[in-house]
Design a protein around this nucleic acid. Structure first.
Lengths: 98, 98
DNA sequence: GCAAAATATTAAATAATTAGAATATTCATA
DNA sequence: TATGAATATTCTAATTATTTAATATTTTGC
């Protein structure tokens, strides 16, 4: 196998991350977070989605290690946990050039 | 929104591509194809999966514009259709380094 | 400690994906 | 044109993901 190409076992892990990014709202949330750290409420407004849905998506991404959260008062601020994420999204954008 | 970050409508399209890559076998197939053009049979062996499954995955990726095929005799050779794919795969490898 | 605001969790119903088996198609060669 | 090898398609059952609604938790300010 060519140097740097992931083997089978690795692909399973990566595919799981891709799956997490394969939902339009989650991807949009992530794009918002690439811009700046935000609270759940702010993200809800940006997405035009109900609060529990946003919270669910964020939880999923947090468990996957993609975002992280910190509490400040009764707000929770979310941000990108993995610094490679913005590059991945930009890289993916090149694929879809319509 | 940070320059270059996709807006809501765009995210739907990108998410669709992410979804196509979010299956472990499809992702592995793609990694194999990054190495070299291969027939369905070769890919089946590399994946250890049944022929119809491989064929289904390849068809899906072909419809998404990610891979392409050419027939030679009664073999069908698949290869990467989008030149940005290898960079994407490399980009994604940086994500999960556990 | 109580009420209100912000966020999180749970459960039930619905929808989408996947795997597997069976069958069909395409092409080369006899 | 009949046969075999390679690939593709179709259908269905099983699994997994998503949506929606209801409820719970956490924290602040009184």
């Amino acid at each position: 196998m060519k140097k740097g190409m992931p083997e089978r076992r690795r692909c399973a892990r990566l595919a799981s991350i891709f799956k997490t990014l394969s939902h339009p709202q989650r991807l949009y949330l992530l794009c918002c977070l690439c811009e700046k750290e935000s609270t759940v409420g702010e993200l809800g407004k940006a997405c035009g989605a109900a609060q529990p849905v946003i919270s669910q998506h964020l939880t999923r991404m947090r468990l996957e290690g993609i975002v992280e959260s910190r509490r400040a008062g009764n707000h929770v601020h979310y941000s990108i946990a993995d610094p490679h994420i913005p590059a991945l999204i930009r890289s993916m954008e090149k694929i879809s050039h319509e």
